[in-house]
């Protein structure tokens, strides 16, 4: 009876382990989706209200989501000794997400998104956002594909491992 209970625990733990390990793929999707939404808001504010970047960053820093902290850092940088929006963006992304579930190349890709923002007229901002949206779509598509492929694989691996251990014990 005790053995059966231990086996059930092992299977449950391996299931939990698989779920937690594969959560990183969900986490990546959440982060990239959040930055996509925030850039959509930024684009709307720039195109229709002509709000300045400091004002937009201040508003976005108050919203929910993993990227809000990046905008808080940017606000502090723009008000203080920070030099350019692109540098502050890159620094902010690397500080917040270098230890997150994002892969290194994904962090690098996101860090480069701030380049060109605020530097030209509206036409140049439109081109910037077109480039940003293309890059974000690529990152999202990669993350979705990875998620659908690897999540199930890791769940199966962990659960199979747990079952195998249980069988051996029994």
């Amino acid at each position: 009876m005790l053995r059966v209970m231990v086996c059930i625990m092992i299977v449950l733990l391996s299931f939990a382990g698989g779920y937690l390990y594969s959560w990183r793929f969900t986490g990546r999707l959440l982060i990239i989706n959040d930055v996509k939404e925030k850039f959509n808001s930024m684009e709307r504010e720039i195109m229709f209200s002509m709000d300045t970047l400091p004002e937009i960053c201040r508003d976005l820093s108050k919203e929910e989501g993993p990227f809000s902290k990046v905008f808080t850092r940017i606000c502090e940088g723009l008000a203080g000794e920070g030099d350019s929006f692109a540098e502050l963006w890159s620094e902010g992304v690397k500080k917040e997400f270098s230890r997150s579930s994002l892969k290194k190349d994904q962090v690098e890709g996101l860090a480069l998104l701030g380049k060109g923002l605020g530097k030209g007229d509206i036409e140049e901002q439109k081109k910037c956002f077109a480039r940003i949206n293309t890059e974000l779509e690529r990152l999202l598509s990669e993350a979705r594909e990875e998620s659908s492929r690897l999540k199930k694989m890791y769940m199966s691996l962990f659960v199979s491992g747990g079952l195998a251990v249980s069988i051996i014990l029994i």
Binding site: D51, T52, P54, L78, G118, K119, I122, E124, Q125
Partner: peptide
């Protein structure tokens, strides 16, 4: 950089 900072990092505005 001076000009960009004077323009609130938002030349378009």
């Amino acid at each position: 950089l001076i000009v960009e900072k004077l323009l609130d990092h938002s030349v378009y505005a």
